[in-house]
Every structure is written in C-alpha cells, then in structure tokens.
Amino acid sequence: MAQAAAAGHATIFEDWGSDVTTFKGVPWGKAMMWIFLLSDTFIFSCFLISYMTVRITAAEPWPNASEVFSLTMFGAPVPLLLIAIMTFDLITSSGTMALAVNYGYRRDKKKAIRFICATAFFGAVFVGMQAFEWTKLISEGVKPWGNEWGAEQFGACFFMITGFHGMHVSAGVIYLLIVAWRLHKGVYDKTNYEIVEIVGLYWHFVDLVWVFIFAFFYLW
C-alpha cells in the first residue's frame, strides 16, 4: 500500500487538517478498536506501575519468581518452564491470527475462519495452562493475602495481573468464536472483512500485554 508511512510526515498535517475523516482508510470499527486498545494500555500500565511501586517499597523480601514458577522435569527443577510454554503458545496464536487477517483481506473466507478457530484454540489452551498454574500455586501456599516466602504483595500482584490478562484472553476467545460464526453465516459478506483485522488487533494486543507481564513479573 502506497498510503503507508513512506508517504512522509507531511501527511500528518494533511490528515488532521482534512474534512470527513482524520484516519484515512480506517473503518469506524477499526478506529474504535485502536482507541479502545489505547485506553486498555493505560489500564494494564497502571496495574504494572502499581506492581512496581509495591514491589520497590516492600521491606520484606520479594519471592524469586524463577524459583516459585519452576516445574520439576526429569528430577530437576526447570525455572519458568510452564510460563515459557504459555509464551510460545500465545505467540503461536498471534501467528495464526496474523494469517487469518491476511486471508480475510484476500477474501478467502474458509481459510480465515479456520485460522480464527485455531487462534481461539490456542487462546483456550493458554487459559487452561493458566488455570493449572493458579491451582498449583494456590496449593503451594501462595495466596493473594500472603505467602511463605516474603512480601505478601507478590501473590496479590500475581493473581491480579495475570487474572486481568486471563480475563482478556477468555473474552478474546469468545470474541473470536463469535466473529468466526458470523463470518461463516455470511454476515460480513458485503464488507471488506475488516472485522477480522479488528478482532486481530485485539488479539495481538493481548499477546503484547503478555510480553510486558513476562518481562516485568516473571523475569524481574
């Protein structure tokens, strides 16, 4: 697309100075999703900043995430194993989503639906692994109001941040399935299938958030 960034910074003033639409070629739904994601960025950032604050101010030792989140494999603890698998799972789902968007714009409805469903599947797997992780941690004694290893905010932040992210993933899975179903029924046949890109934006955002959670919660 020649309308791309290559067109230069001068387009900023043209676009913002024009009538009818400011974001040229961006459908209403896509504009709305972008703005929503911007707002959601503020929500997740505020969660992460709160986590940073209570962690730095904590006078009790902060439990070591890489030990807490280790799985025993072949008799030896492997740090963050499950988290790594979850990360790869989410990236996989992002890839399938990107393909779905691509096929959507090629008007290859069947393939688009197939890849959306694959994305939803990987998302559901992610939620399942998260449920497993929560169960394991709770049974090991990590509760939102305390744990055995140190600052009680560790558990509180963990459950809150991953829980909020997990809710986004779950909502995303439902959203994906609804879109796939409506696509199948032909609801969007008169449009350009931009709905696939819109749901894709949401899904990639969920993956994006995980990148930050992984770095700041599990690796710090």
Binding site: M1, Q3, V26, V211
Partner: peptide, 26 residues
C-alpha cells in the same frame, strides 16, 4: 507485534502518532 502483526507500520503517520504519543504520560 505492533508494527507487523497489528500493521501499524503500514498505517499513516496521523494514526501512528495518535497511538504512540499518549503513553508518554505513563
């Protein structure tokens, strides 16, 4: 993820800046 998968790289600057500047407050 943002540039390629979310296609921000191919959007016009008007949108790119509208999305990337506000998080500065954060």
């Amino acid at each position: 993820i943002v540039a390629i998968f979310m296609h921000l790289k191919w959007e016009r600057w008007a949108l790119i800046y509208a999305l990337l500047l506000p998080p500065g407050a954060l």
